[in-house]
Simulated assay, not measured.
Amino acid sequence: MADVIPVDLPSLDQPFSWATRAGDVVCTAHGPVRGDGTIETGDVEAQATLTFDNLRRAIASADLTLNDVAQVLIYLTEVADMRTVDAVYRTFFDAPYPNRSTVVVKALVVPGMRIEIVAYAAPSAT
């Protein structure tokens, strides 16, 4: 079983952990969750910035940095949001970038939520 990593993000009363560690690999998933547990449903730039900031916080809780992220999976509800998400992504990650896949889905769990991500990190991934 994976070890749960304590992350300073709100409990959403759902059956998941913000981050877990299995061996050296940290697994984490995020959306635009504010510190009070509400979801940002405004423009995609604000949602993406909050989502990637939540990722940064979770990775830091595992004593890693975004340079240790090996893979990012991005789920978007609008293909037109890709350019904006790419711009935000570049403010959080430097080249060489993590491996990445982007999928456009019909909807996410919360109405108005336009982005969700999954990331995997390990020490010295870059």
Rank of each mutant, 00 (worst) to 15 (best):
Ala2Thr: 04
Asp3Arg: 07
Asp3Phe: 00
Asp3Trp: 00
Val4Phe: 00
Val4Glu: 05
Val4Cys: 02
Val4His: 05
Pro6Asn: 05
Pro6Cys: 03
Val7Arg: 04
Leu9Arg: 15
Leu9Ala: 15
Leu9Ser: 13
Pro10Ile: 01
Pro10Met: 03
Ser11Glu: 12
Leu12Ala: 09
Asp13Glu: 11
Asp13Cys: 03
Asp13Thr: 03
Asp13Tyr: 03
Gln14Lys: 15
Gln14Ile: 08
Gln14Trp: 05
Pro15Tyr: 01
Phe16Met: 10
Ser17Ile: 00
Ser17Met: 00
Trp18Ala: 07
Ala19Gly: 02
Ala19Val: 02
Thr20Gln: 06
Thr20Asp: 01
Thr20Tyr: 00
Arg21Gly: 01
Arg21Phe: 00
Ala22Thr: 09
Gly23Asn: 07
Asp24Glu: 11
Val25Glu: 09
Val25Lys: 13
Val26Leu: 02
Cys27Ser: 14
Thr28Asn: 02
Gly31Gln: 13
Gly31Trp: 07
Pro32Asn: 14
Val33Lys: 15
Arg34Trp: 10
Arg34His: 15
Arg34Asn: 14
Arg34Gly: 10
Asp36Arg: 14
Asp36Lys: 14
Gly37Lys: 13
Thr38Glu: 13
Glu40Gly: 02
Thr41Val: 15
Thr41Cys: 11
Thr41His: 13
Gly42Ile: 09
Val44Glu: 00
Val44Gln: 03
Val44Gly: 02
Glu45Arg: 15
Ala46Met: 12
Ala46Ser: 14
Gln47Phe: 00
Gln47Thr: 04
Gln47Lys: 12
Ala48Trp: 02
Thr49Leu: 07
Thr49Val: 08
Thr49His: 06
Thr51Met: 11
Thr51Gly: 11
Thr51Gln: 12
Thr51Ala: 13
Phe52Gln: 10
Asn54Ala: 15
Asn54Ile: 05
Asn54Ser: 14
Leu55Glu: 07
Arg56Tyr: 09
Arg57His: 06
Arg57Ile: 08
Ala58Thr: 14
Ala58Lys: 10
Ala58Asp: 12
Ala58Gly: 15
Ala58Ser: 15
Ala58Phe: 06
Ser61Asn: 07
Ser61Glu: 04
Asp63Gln: 11
Asp63Ile: 02
Leu64Thr: 06
Leu64Trp: 04
Leu64Asp: 01
Leu64Ala: 05
Thr65Phe: 07
Thr65Asn: 03
Thr65His: 06
Thr65Cys: 01
Leu66Gln: 10
Leu66Arg: 13
Asn67Gln: 13
Asn67Pro: 00
Asn67Ser: 14
Asp68Ile: 02
Val69Lys: 05
Val69Tyr: 01
Ala70Tyr: 03
Ala70Thr: 08
Gln71Tyr: 11
Gln71Val: 04
Gln71Met: 05
Leu73Met: 08
Ile74Arg: 13
Ile74Leu: 10
Tyr75Met: 14
Tyr75Thr: 10
Tyr75Ile: 05
Leu76Ala: 06
Thr77Val: 14
Thr77Gly: 12
Thr77Phe: 05
Ala80Val: 09
Met82Cys: 04
Met82Ser: 12
Thr84Leu: 04
Val85Lys: 11
Asp86Ser: 11
Asp86Asn: 14
Val88Tyr: 04
Tyr89Asn: 12
Arg90His: 08
Arg90Met: 04
Arg90Lys: 12
Thr91Asp: 10
Phe92Pro: 06
Asp94Met: 00
Ala95His: 07
Ala95Glu: 08
Tyr97Cys: 06
Pro98Met: 01
Pro98Leu: 01
Pro98Tyr: 00
Asn99Lys: 08
Asn99Ile: 04
Arg100Leu: 10
Arg100His: 04
Arg100Trp: 02
Ser101Ile: 03
